[in-house]
Design a protein around this nucleic acid. Sequence first.
DNA 1: CCAATATTTGCATCCCTGTTGCACTTAGCG
DNA 2: CGCTAAGTGCAACAGGGATGCAAATATTGG
Lengths: 139, 139
Amino acid sequence: MTKVKDTLREHDLRNTSCREDVLAILTQNNAALSHGEIERELDNRFDRVTIYRTLKTFVDKGIIHKVLDEEGLRYAVCKDQCSGSRHHHDHLHFKCTVCGLTNCIENITIPPIQLPAGYKSIETNLLIQGVCPLCNSDN
Amino acid sequence: MTKVKDTLREHDLRNTSCREDVLAILTQNNAALSHGEIERELDNRFDRVTIYRTLKTFVDKGIIHKVLDEEGLRYAVCKDQCSGSRHHHDHLHFKCTVCGLTNCIENITIPPIQLPAGYKSIETNLLIQGVCPLCNSDN
DNA sequence: CCAATATTTGCATCCCTGTTGCACTTAGCG
DNA sequence: CGCTAAGTGCAACAGGGATGCAAATATTGG
Ligand SMILES: [Mn+2]
Ligand SMILES: [Mn+2]
Ligand SMILES: [Zn+2]
Ligand SMILES: [Zn+2]
């Protein structure tokens, strides 16, 4: 995929097969993936430390962002323009308790929350658990 | 502390020193604590597995609830009446990036979030990171 | 108050994730 | 094509979660 190579180049990253494959997997997959899931999907073709460092590099460069759910840490590609110093994600994450997938819901903006006096908000992280449309039999 | 003993009895739990001490620590502390922090506070007087099982028991009984932040899992006492099957926490959690403490903000209700069609919400988890009043020099 | 028993604990052990150091390999450049 | 900085694999460690099992103990009924 040329797109993947371009993304790497744009972020001053050398084009290696591990980086290509990890980014391709995250791009194709619309659910957020954990380190372990990515490792499995790569069929052990790379050392897990390399995958770990690849994910860290991508987060630092603003190519992917972390997604926190009850089971731990996952990763998803940034749809907005992000950089390492500034990830701006005001979208929410939805975890389906039936299929287990965690997804970014991009088109919903988190309403502003009025904090008590003295609190200064920097980053908001909203996770909603429930049932996704595909698993919802009520339609 | 009699209060602690009462709480244990009310939930049909045997009164053991590990349970007493863990619950006392969580009650006195207003910040959410991790397994490791509790272990340290107990000065290694109990096996980590015992503490682990104690926390699990408390969560199952609705005495404490999990608090998810970037660093992992923490625990805080439930202020509302909760049971194992039904933890109802509509409050938000605030993590101060200066002092590192994570707290429950009880008196703010999370505004309802309009999900796209087909999504069914069961539980909402809101974490705001920022600076707490004690660390905020702007007052 | 004591004995019986169901519960709880500590220990051993396993698995998974994250992290670092170091030597070897390789991508990208001139 | 060869140099060099960057990336990789391997070994090793730390932390947390989880389970099985035998020893210890809280509770209860006598
Ligand atoms: Mn996202
Ligand atoms: Mn809370
Ligand atoms: Zn689903
Ligand atoms: Zn603070």
